[in-house]
Amino acid sequence: MKKKIKILILLGLCLVATCLIGASVLAHTTTSTKLAAWGRYLNDKNHDASVADDIYAQGEKTCITTKDIEQVQNFYMLSGKDEKTAWEEAVQYVKEREALYQAAIDNGYSVTDQEVWDYIDELKKTVDSADNKEDALAIIRQFDSEQDYWNYEFSVYQKNLPIQNYVHDIEQTFMQRSASSKKASNEIESEWQQYFEQLKTDLINKENYQIVNK
């Protein structure tokens, strides 16, 4: 009887361990599956010259396109959001990115093609040394070649690099100002997140986007 109880307990522990390991593998597989699908979408879109680039909304200095919104919508739907929510959040995201880019350019953060390629070289090293390098490879493998992928990233970072440099300097100024305060670090970080969200909102309001193509 005691032996049977011990065997049952051992089997139970094995079952629990299997479930925990399985859950972890499943989570990683789900991420890899999502990113592979994302990579296929980016590669297809990158090669599809027929995709129209209609202007969805016009701002004071910049505009947002249906093509860009649909890309972000696709990303959110791959993450599990429904079509309507994904569209609404995609419109907001693209507005934020375009408004940030315009603010970066207005504040002198434009970059040359060489600076973008130099950054791409650094990004390759970052990807190669990342703990979740496999996540990046799940996307890269969907492109016709690795160079094809990095050529695509060049087009992304022509806009992202000015934004990154602009936001980095604003963050550093904010953190230095907060460093002398007696606030806890998590409080300062939370305040930065709020400040960043408010910055994006203010920049969108400044653009005053008007929808031109529903």
Partner: peptide
């Protein structure tokens, strides 16, 4: 730990 996060505009 060095972590990458894929973002909607196609970068990281």
């Amino acid at each position: 730990k060095k972590q990458l996060f894929a973002v909607p505009e196609g970068g990281w």
